[in-house]
Amino acid sequence: MNGFIAVYLRELLILKHRFWRMLMSFAVSPVLYLVAFGLGMGKNVKVGHQSYVEFLIPGLVAMSSMMQGFGINVEINVTRFYLKVFEEFQAAPISNLSYVCGEVAGGVTRAILASCVIVCLSLVTGLGLTFGPDFWGLVFLNATVFAALGVTSAMLIKNHADQALITNLVITPMAFLGGTFFPLKNLPPWARAPLELIPLSHASRGLRMAASHRPVSPEDCIILAVLSIAAIGLAWWSVDRAKD
């Protein structure tokens, strides 16, 4: 438990020292997407009976919580290859699992902060969306899945350059195709089937339901919960691979 607290507290202290800068960076891409796709398209573009902006915001939360959760990998890489503080963790008498949980909690915290930024933006614009416990529960699960994957990738890579490759090959495509910017329903079945499988699709669909007062499908929740546990398991396994 102490190991978890140490690792998580360190991430929190880093967050505290860079709080405003970080908040700004969390806001940049959602604001750009909102302006470009939301406001740019105007209120007349409808998806179902919602305006496109109302459709877009939960998708942006799904995307941002994925990106910022996964983004813990950048922090870990800096810690591992540049600051070398990762060796402190390797030498310390803490379990690999408490290390993983500490870093995942760090990623989830960033993801929740990033989601708060978008939620605040949308509250300011006065849209008819609600953000209840079901909404935040899904943000939490989505962030956990991707933070754990972020930890895994940070443990498996051998140098910093590999990281950009993983982000460009896996995360960026998911950000666009995971039901964030358009409803997957509109796709032909052959394209839809594989996209339904990616975790982000479940998160964006669930968040969209929760934000517009509709019941979230239990299937989406269960899939995300199972994936979080699996991803944490994967991260746990990967920690030992980082040793030379």
Binding site: N2, G3, I5, A6, V7, R10, L13, E88, A92, P93
Partner: peptide, 9 residues
């Protein structure tokens, strides 16, 4: 130093 202390229980 605080983080180190926590790491060592």
């Amino acid at each position: 130093l605080l983080i180190h202390g926590l790491l060592y229980h």
